[in-house]
Nucleic acid binder design. Structure first.
Lengths: 156, 156
DNA sequence: GTGGGTGCAAAAGGTTTGCATAGTG
DNA sequence: CACTATGCAAACCTTTTGCACCCAC
């Protein structure tokens, strides 16, 4: 598990390295979008990033911001919080439970919380600080048995 | 922490009770949308639910499905997995970390994982089963200090 | 009968795509 | 100079809103 420094300068160096490795052009747009994301401490949406970038590149297009963000996530220089995809999902389960999310096929399945609660309860208190934690939900990312079997058969 | 049975019959009884308590009409649409969500073991999108419901109520409108789903979540008879909202978000953080999500203002902040990993590692293995867990991320839901302060001042 | 619920159509986000142009390596 | 990345416009997908009609209570 390689820890990546959050220092903008280091991250920018990582960005340049990754671009060279993959033969990607280091355009002004990519550089500025990355700088903007690093400069914000929060979790901005594409639109918020677009607004910030426009201050420095007034003629940039929204499309470019979307494409650049995708690229930056692909090469691992910025992150994208775990999401179930574009559309809202619904589920029969109304009590505390967690999710297994297959990174291959996207299928989501439930994990009951049961005795796990005991493991996390102290963590909830610890993480609280000045944030009052009321509940939590864990997203487990991995490969489901179906996709693993498929990969084993060589379909990759 | 009240545990709600997932048995369709029980859930339907709960639905009827909640509707009566709140003076909500028990329409065919609400009943069928609920039945459809309970009948599916997965985490369907509104569109998938709409398709299923249309088999039984061919003239139902998409709008109604959206509105009914909202209502069913409100009265707690179905769930909606934790989501950061409509738009995709991006973040500087690329290593394992978790999120505090304020249920009042929607602001998201990071929680470093650090020693927490040790607490969860056995859980990752335990939950695995035939699902190969590669990573996980915890969403903590609660009230941030700013919103708590605001509530204390009576702005609720 | 009355008020909340539904259906329709239109609009409002958010994101993606096709194609011509511009800029990087 | 070649090829990739960008910009524009239009399309697409998901969700919300306003308004008239309908039906459960």
């Amino acid at each position: 598990m390689s820890f990546q420094s959050k220092e903008p300068a280091d991250r920018m160096a990582l960005f340049e390295r990754r671009c060279r490795e993959r033969g990607l052009a280091m355009t002004v747009q990519r550089r500025v979008v990355l700088e903007v994301v690093l400069a914000r401490g929060d979790h901005p949406t594409a639109e918020q990033i677009y607004e910030d970038v426009k201050l420095r590149i007034p003629d940039i297009s929204r499309t470019t911001v979307y494409r650049v963000l995708d690229t930056l996530v692909d090469i691992g220089v910025i992150g994208k919080p775990s999401h179930f995809g574009a559309a809202t999902r619904y589920e029969p389960n109304v009590h505390r439970h967690h999710h297994l999310i297959c990174i291959e096929c996207g299928r989501v399945s439930d994990v009951e919380d049961d005795e796990t609660v005991a493991d996390i309860e102290p963590l909830m208190r610890k993480q609280a600080g000045d944030f009052a934690v009321l509940d939590y939900s864990i997203h487990f990312h991995g490969v489901c048995s179906a996709c693993a079997a498929q990969a084993r058969r060589g379909d990759i």
